[in-house]
């Protein structure tokens, strides 16, 4: 028997049903296409030359320059402030909304509510951007960073909402029933059963909201006034002024920041998936 286990097969190999030749290669080409620009961007951030595309040697000078650039520091600070408030507020709103929509049974207006909550996902960003610009101008709100925060809270809600709702729908209601059966009040059940079980979903939602807020460009560009420039908007103005590796350096840092958070999100959600599946 061990002979058969090790004997190399001389037979023509028939692919299993549903498999196709070249798919793996296609997938590899796809991933290269997806990551090549990111790799190029990072590579040229270490270029010594002023001109991005003319490689003249390795250097980390552009990182040092970016770190010392006061305008970049301001933009990063603005981005972090906006992202912080947008995340906290949108996650709170999304959590309550998700609890109602996933646990409130069927009620009149459920579909409409779902539609409203996912509205920012369906409307093209540029339309959201100009609608908000018109709105702020029409009612005369000019709160600087406040305008940006309001806009970010609005479009971050669906991103925070989705993982929380997914988590709620994957959760077994029998645990909450068991808690009520074991003499817990409604509040105790919520506090000791629902919230801990829901936590991975809330964390995931908050992470996505944070990344989306940090990365947003077009809506911020339209609603932010002078002095409320965020990092992506500042990077855009740098690109307009001329391509130096400093752009690459800042971009690389923002990129790595997003990747780190998304990776953390992935690990958290993967862990909870295996927990629920066993």
């Amino acid at each position: 028997m061990s002979d058969q286990l090790t004997r190399p097969s001389s037979k023509r190999k028939i692919l299993p049903v549903g498999h196709y030749r070249g798919l793996g290669l296609w997938n590899a080409a796809f991933l290269i296409f997806l990551y090549m620009p990111i790799a190029v961007l990072i590579f040229y951030s270490f270029n010594d030359n002023r001109m991005v595309m003319i490689w003249s040697g390795f250097s980390i000078d552009w990182y040092i320059k970016a770190f010392n650039n006061v305008a970049i520091q301001d933009a990063v600070l603005n981005s972090l402030i906006v992202a912080f408030f947008a995340t906290v507020i949108s996650t709170a709103i999304a959590t309550i909304g998700a609890l109602v929509l996933a646990r409130g049974g069927n009620f009149r207006g459920k579909t409409m509510s779902l539609g409203l909550i996912t509205l920012p996902l369906m409307v093209p960003e540029i339309v959201t951007a100009v609608a908000m610009l018109i709105f702020f101008a029409a009612i005369g709100i000019n709160w600087g960073l406040g305008n940006v925060i309001i806009a970010h809270v609005t479009f971050c809600i669906p991103f925070a909402f989705m993982p929380i709702r997914a988590r709620l729908e994957g959760m077994d209601t029998s645990m909450e029933q068991a808690s009520r059966d074991l003499y817990a009040s409604e509040w105790e059940t919520f506090r000791y059963i629902t919230v801990p079980l829901l936590m991975p979903g809330i964390i995931a939602g908050a992470m996505l909201a944070f990344v989306i807020s940090m990365d947003d460009f077009i809506i911020t560009l339209m609603v932010s006034g002078a002095g409320s420039t965020t990092l992506p908007v500042y990077i855009y103005s740098m690109i307009r002024r001329g391509l130096t590796p400093e752009i690459n350096a800042v971009s690389t840092l923002l990129l790595l920041f997003s990747i780190t958070i998304v990776t953390a999100y992935w690990i958290v959600s993967n862990k909870t998936r295996t927990e629920t599946v066993h």
């Binding site: 997806l34 620009p37 190029v40 690459n248 923002l254």
Partner: peptide, 24 residues
């Protein structure tokens, strides 16, 4: 995860990278 990563990273930056690739 690999396919969603670019989606969650900044679109402006990812498009900028193409200038370096396609440009003069």
């Amino acid at each position: 995860y690999l396919i969603t990563i670019p989606f969650w990273t900044n679109l402006l930056i990812r498009t900028f990278a193409w200038i370096i690739i396609l440009g003069r």
